[in-house]
Structure formats: structure tokens, C-alpha cells
Amino acid sequence: MNRCLTIGAVAATLGLVACATHTVDAQWSSPQLANTPLAGAKVLVACEAPEEVLGRICLDKLAAELRSRGLTPVLRPDTAPPPATQARDDSRYLPEARAAGARAVWVASVGPEAHDPGSSGSGLSIGFGGFSFGRSSSVGLGVSMPIGGSSANTAYAADARVSDAGTGLLLWTARAGSAPSGDARVQIEALLQRLVDAAGGAKVF
């Protein structure tokens, strides 16, 4: 009897952990989202990253996740972030999305965060050009973080935005961060899966 209770408790704990791994740090939906579901839609997919390898990992994973949910992604090959003098503005993707017949623009920004293992855990930040997201503003995009080798203190974050291609209206956005590890690909792919899962929960598609 006690053994069954123990197994049940362990299973419940594992279930809670599994659910927790699919959460995002924050998300927002427009009231207009209910009128613009993207189920089965063609979407322009753009990834913004400080390094080409991160951008390519982002594009491959995001496209695979969206295809698995019935969307048709049209990939934008340029993964460079906005210039340092230019604020984030996803409207620059709209003409390309309309030309491709896409109903929406799906943009993801991915990159390294600064992490101070001696801090209380609140020193994470990431910057792209004229904008940043994170929990502090301690590092900018000009800093190149290691992909391999000694990268135990490297954490990554991802930000996703979905906008209507016709109106440019932001429909949904979310942000997710990860704990530091030595494998950038694993972190980024997990972050993007969490973001797409959250979009599905928010009825984006």
C-alpha cells in the first residue's frame, strides 16, 4: 500500500515537472486574436539572432514545430537582428509576408543571456539592436557568448511575436528563458518548443 502511494507521489511530481518545462516566462494576446485564428495558415517565419548558427537552428526548429501543428511556414533566410541604431519593428517583414501570400508573420529572437552564478538568479538579460528583453540590462548583443567549450554559465532566451500580415497588428507575444548549460542547440530548441506550445494554448492556431 505504501509502495503504491510512493509510486503515485513520484508520478505526480514528475507530471508537475513535465508541465513546468513547457511554461513561458510571460505572454500576451490581443483581444483581436479570437477573430484571427491561424489554424492551417501560411506564415512568414523570421528568426533574429546574433550569430548565424543560432539563427539557422532557430529557423529549422521553428519551421518543424509549426509544420507539426498544421501551419505552412515560409522561411526568411536572413537571420540578422536589427541594426543597433534601429528599434525592433516587425512591420519590415510585412511586405515580404504579403508577397508570399502569408496570413501572419511569426518572428523569433534568440540569443545568449548573461548569467552570474553568484547572484540571486535575477541577472539575466539579452539585447538585440535597439531593444532588449530579460531580467536586467547587464549585457548587450555585441558580446559573443561561447557555443561550445567552457559554456557552463551560458543561458539562452527566446522571444516570439505573431502579427497579422494584412494589418500589422500584433496578435500574440511571449518570452521564455532557460537555465545555463553547455549545449546551445538543446536550449534553443527547447525554448522554441515551449513558445509554440504556449501559442497553441493561447489559440493562435
Rank of each mutant, 00 (worst) to 15 (best):
L16M: 15
H22Y: 08
W106H: 04
P31T: 14
Q32H: 14
A26K: 15
R185G: 02
L54E: 12
G111Q: 02
P180E: 05
L171G: 05
A26H: 15
Q32K: 12
L171H: 04
E48L: 12
G15R: 15
K61C: 06
F133C: 10
S138H: 01
Y156C: 05
A87R: 05
H22S: 14
S125L: 00
H115C: 07
K42T: 13
A84N: 01
D60C: 01
V45N: 01
D197T: 11
G118Y: 09
A34Q: 07
S125V: 01
N35F: 15
D89V: 09
G111W: 02
S68H: 11
A99T: 07
L59E: 03
A165L: 05
A11Y: 04
R103T: 09
A190Y: 00
S144F: 13
S68N: 08
T173W: 06
A160R: 08
S120R: 12
L191A: 06
V105E: 06
S178V: 02
A39Y: 09
A46E: 08
S109G: 11
A9R: 09
G182Y: 02
N2D: 13
A87P: 00
R88F: 10
A102I: 01
K61V: 05
E189A: 00
T79P: 01
C19T: 15
A9L: 14
S136V: 09
D78F: 11
E52Q: 06
S144R: 15
G40K: 05
L195I: 10
L62E: 00
A158T: 07
A12G: 11
S181A: 14
A108P: 03
V110R: 00
H115I: 08
E65L: 12
M145N: 07
T154R: 08
R92I: 13
A108H: 03
A20F: 12
Y156E: 02
L38V: 10
F205P: 08
V139N: 03
L191C: 06
I126E: 04
L54K: 12
A179Y: 08
W172Y: 14
I147S: 02
V43S: 13
L195H: 10
A80C: 06
T6K: 11
L141R: 08
R98T: 07
A184L: 01
R135D: 11
I57N: 01
S150L: 10
P81M: 01
R88Y: 09
I126S: 14
G40Q: 07
S120P: 03
G166V: 04
G148E: 09
G8I: 10
A99G: 04
